[in-house]
Design a protein around this nucleic acid. Structure first.
Lengths: 337, 337
DNA sequence: TATGTTAAAGTTATCGATAACATTAACTGC
DNA sequence: GCAGTTAATGTTATCGATAACTTTAACATA
């Protein structure tokens, strides 16, 4: 690899002069600047950012950790983060934890050893606290995305899970449903807890009894317990509608229902959190609480870079972005049946 | 940040001894090993990989560049690449070119300056040749994914675009369609050219005349020319079926048709390349040529690491992975109407 | 006892860049 | 004509790690 010294020798100057040309600082005569630039071109020189980072104590890399790269919510978020990072001169080191604490820990180790300038972190759940403390102990600027973690103070960009959930459930109530099941993510995740609360609140406000049996504890990646859906359906008073806590769970539920010969919304209404990307473009079918995924990423990145560059105040900032209720056709009026 | 010297001082040994403990090489007495390890724990030491990379001339980072992070084909590919990289001890530096040569060039500059060990590259198109040559000039191990680039010799993992296209078009022909439109990606991209050829071959083999007017040149991201679909429909003999060269184009076409009050497959059959992830899980609707996206990533990564670690032969390897025709309901028999 | 061997360390130079300080030469002003 | 200024460039030390070589001390062997 060509180094600054190769350039220096060929251009008959010192390495420092080359460095000055590269960084465009210090005083340099136009003549030598030209000469050095030309040699750099000739030899195809590219600076070694490892060496540079070592002395500058700055990598200009930001790490983005998400929990599911195949989920449109996170890919849209990632694009928001990436666009903003690029615009502000940072590179993205990308990771995908698969909602898995062990994988997540590996990424945190890598993040630390890479000495990234900051981290945008969508945590897998409350169990992420240990890794996050690790990051904070090393004073790495951190912005939490999508999920809070008890015990971790930091800038946070959240969606309004409680209100979103309430909106969805109230929509179902307005359609006449009284037996509404909740297929939730793990209670280990703040959004799942908030959606659970929103669900309860909507029921309470409308004088519908909360029935523990209608609540299914799954994970955001899949329903896991295959038989759980069966149990729901075989309840003495089975649900007439399902509120799925995210897009994957809704799709999983619909597939499960279909396998049993049940159609949505004719036999069961289904609504969920998060839109579905291409799927919704193709079939505007699922009624959802759509979150501004792109903004999660772009705002989070903005905040993070503010902090990295010392433009943020001391105390953590927190924002709760509203979601938008998009009514489509997966939930039908109970009376119409 | 804690360095090896901080550890050394506190443990009363030299930095070299600490390095030996970290890398588990050289001879060390069990006693000092324990002592050093304990101090490392206490101080929360994490090695600085910039410093390490500088002397080892190895980063253990692999760069993955894709063209569209919101496309399920690429996210599935990315997961394949990531899983394999992780398994073999490499980190992923991730980039998203948005089918844009300028963005792509920026990423290549970053890749070079980061001194990554290798690059998995899904090029935006033929115009990527310049950047790719740049990479090759610097002898960075490279595996091309999904698309070939004229003039670039390297390991390549491709899908069988020609055969896949032929299969889709033959399926339409079997359904009785004779006027089949092609909405293609840019001819600047090898897969678009191959799909075009497959389309022509299928027509020729079945004695259907090739009509240039039925071929629409778009980009893989969207149809771009809004009026183009109108022109197709207003042809003296309009198409009865559309072959879209990828999933996004199919969805775009269907949305366009719907805006004009036309339904798929009743008023128009539509088939396309690449499956749609969640969308297909939710509504198994589009008839597609599904590519083994995960394998693109995992095999490509495997090959790349083989090459990085000197296990690959000199001459480039190339594989063409078959796609699978998945017949669903977006294409209907012409007679049935 | 002198020499050789080996385990367990330590020293020094290096990777490629930049900060901080030092030098040179031309020019300014009195 | 000489001190003072300044533009342009050079030298040296440094970032944090490791390779290659060196040293030390304990022990074995003839």
């Amino acid at each position: 690899m060509i180094t600054i010294y190769d350039i220096a020798k060929k251009a008959n100057v010192s390495a420092m002069t080359v460095s000055r040309v590269i960084n465009n600082n210090g005083k340099i005569s136009e003549l030598t600047r030209q000469r050095v630039k030309q040699v750099m071109e000739e030899l195809n020189y590219v600076p070694n950012s490892n060496a540079r980072s070592l002395v500058l104590q700055k990598t200009h890399i930001i790490s983005l950790l998400i929990t599911d790269i195949t989920n449109p919510f996170y890919t849209t978020l990632a694009r928001g983060a990436e666009d903003t990072a690029k615009r502000l001169g940072y590179k993205l080191l990308f990771g995908n934890s698969d909602e898995n604490y062990a994988k997540e820990k590996d990424y945190v180790d890598m993040i630390l050893s890479t000495r990234v300038d900051g981290v945008l972190f969508a945590p897998a759940g409350d169990g992420s606290a240990a890794h996050l403390q690790q990051l904070q102990k090393h004073r790495i600027p951190l912005v939490l995305l999508d999920r809070e973690v008890p015990g971790i103070q930091s800038d946070t960009v959240l969606g309004d899970s409680k209100e979103g959930a309430r909106g969805l459930v109230e929509h179902l109530l307005e359609l006449g449903h009284r037996r509404i099941a909740l297929i939730n993510g793990s209670e280990d995740v703040s959004t799942a807890r908030q959606r659970h609360i929103g669900y309860k609140e909507a029921l309470k406000l409308n004088d519908v009894a909360y029935d523990e049996e209608l609540v299914l504890h799954a994970s955001y990646r899949d329903i896991q317990d295959e038989a759980a859906l069966d149990r729901l359906l075989q309840l003495p008073e089975p649900p007439t509608a399902i509120f799925a806590a995210n897009n994957f769970l809704a799709v999983g539920a619909i597939q499960g229902l279909r396998a049993k010969g049940l159609e949505v919304p004719d036999d069961m209404s289904v609504v969920c959190f998060d839109d579905l990307g291409l799927a919704s473009a193709l079939h505007p079918f699922l009624t959802v609480a759509a979150q501004p995924a792109y903004q999660f990423g772009s705002l989070g990145m903005q905040w993070l870079i503010d902090r990295i560059e010392g433009r943020a105040q001391e105390e953590p900032r927190k924002i709760i972005l509203p979601s938008e209720l998009i009514i489509r056709s997966s939930a039908a009026s109970l009376g119409v049946r």
